[in-house]
Deep mutational scan, measured.
Amino acid sequence: MASQGTKRSYEQMETDGERQNATEIRASVGKMIGGIGRFYIQMCTELKLSDYEGRLIQNSLTIERMVLSAFDERRNKYLEEHPSAGKDPKKTGGPIYRRVNGKWMRELILYDKEEIRRIWRQANNGDDATAGLTHMMIWHSNLNDATYQRTRALVRTGMDPRMCSLMQGSTLPRRSGAAGAAVKGVGTMVMELVRMIKRGINDRNFWRGENGRKTRIAYERMCNILKGKFQTAAQKAMMDQVRESRNPGNAEFEDLTFLARSALILRGSVAHKSCLPACVYGPAVASGYDFEREGYSLVGIDPFRLLQNSQVYSLIRPNENPAHKSQLVWMACHSAAFEDLRVLSFIKGTKVLPRGKLSTRGVQIASNENMETMESSTLELRSRYWAIRTRSGGNTNQQRASAGQISIQPTFSVQRNLPFDRTTIMAAFNGNTEGRTSDMRTEIIRMMESARPEDVSFQGRGVFELSDEKAASPIVPSFDMSNEGSYFFGDNAEEYDN
């Protein structure tokens, strides 16, 4: 783990906690998980779902989305002020799938948001429990990260689609708070800032007046979040320049895209947490497990152990491969979309394939898809080993990566060399080191050039047997250095459309 220093740990961010010791953190995270579980059980009762239907990941996603929508204050306010045809701002819903006479049927349900809020609060001892809501947002974000390569979004903001390893959390809503900021990748933060800068260039009043003052505060806050992700002084200094700019424009845009590229080699610290679907927490609570009393951590053995003992089902389209669908969801559960496939294969105990080789589309089923041909199958979400999630980018030494994705962002704290394609990355730096950030740029390029592919990161860190909950005997895996390590390699994943 990167030293926490003055930073709060993510469990504290996750639970809005002030400084807590490890036991208190485990208890408050457990409380959050228990609340999600209780809410899910109650919703299944309301909807009269069978046990099997309640364990269907598509039903879980609909129920999670309903509660997130019920608590989305800004959108609710907007919907009330701008009524649109056929949208009731006070209601929320989605597809629920039921097994009827041996076939899967889709039923569109509609609930009062007020009623959903009441059920959620009741499951969370009367609190709004925003930490639990954020947790579900991060699960949705991790699922998107594993399912889609955001080529269009990258290109629109002047970045290269091969930089997708920097895009963790790119679909997280803005209201996801400190826990959300911690899991956002460098590219995601750059993209958010670039969008602001572009608006400022096109709209003279963007930075002016009372609204402009708020915009400015948001801009500086985002700059500080991004600065905190960088691990070298030169990158941090460049972020200070971007933040202090009187009138952010093209120079800042250039600096930010430069920094994003540099992060492929001088990786930023991005938190990883295993956020599971509500249909995993519900049955665990129903079986009598007391998360608050037992304590829970999002970055240790607990999620692995929970998945070892969970039964989750998914709808499967006619030509999809259930094992591939399982891999997709497994990666999402562990926030591992940008991790090295060699490491993932070792931990999972079966070969993890790149996205383009998977015969599976996303987990969600569109409303126009034919239910007649839908089957369902068990998702295999178990693992051979477990490993500690990392909050750091690993040290800054790398190795060759593949054509589709030119770097990785480690999820697990496991000893290995970190793949990246130096030639491709360095070719993108057209040696432009003039301007006010020239000395920093020169320094950053120097550090990137001296990074050695064969150097090892996370020295001495290994994986653990599932029986080793105290992480007492690390097993340090050895990897084939020459092997392909990137998930979005030469990829044809669908595009994420909101």
Rank of each mutant, 00 (worst) to 15 (best):
M163S: 06
R355K: 11
G177V: 07
N397G: 12
L110C: 11
V343T: 15
S9T: 06
E369K: 11
F346C: 06
R175A: 07
D255P: 00
L143C: 12
I36P: 06
Q4P: 15
Y97N: 08
R99F: 09
I347R: 00
L381M: 12
I201V: 09
G187Q: 03
Q308I: 13
K113P: 01
A251L: 09
R26T: 07
I96Q: 00
F258L: 11
G126R: 12
N432V: 09
K470T: 07
M448R: 04
V463Y: 04
F488C: 09
S402T: 13
N211G: 08
A85L: 01
G34I: 10
S457N: 07
T6R: 02
T188M: 11
S60F: 06
F230Q: 09
L172I: 13
G54Q: 10
E495I: 04
T257E: 05
K90E: 11
E469Q: 12
G462D: 03
G460R: 15
T130V: 08
G30Q: 07
I201F: 11
K7R: 07
W386N: 08
R382F: 05
K77D: 09
S69W: 04
D468F: 06
N202P: 01
S84G: 14
E434W: 01
M13I: 09
I265N: 02
L110W: 10
S450C: 06
E11S: 03
D88R: 00
G17I: 02
R416M: 06
Y111D: 13
A403I: 04
E107W: 10
G404I: 03
V312A: 10
S269V: 13
A27V: 11
G288S: 14
W120D: 04
Q12L: 09
A401V: 13
G394D: 04
A131I: 02
E210C: 05
R204W: 10
W104Y: 10
S486K: 11
I109E: 04
N144G: 15
P354R: 15
R452E: 05
A153V: 13
K7P: 00
A123T: 11
L68T: 09
D439Y: 10
S50P: 01
K7H: 00
L226R: 11
V352K: 05
D240Q: 03
R436L: 03
G5C: 15
G490I: 02
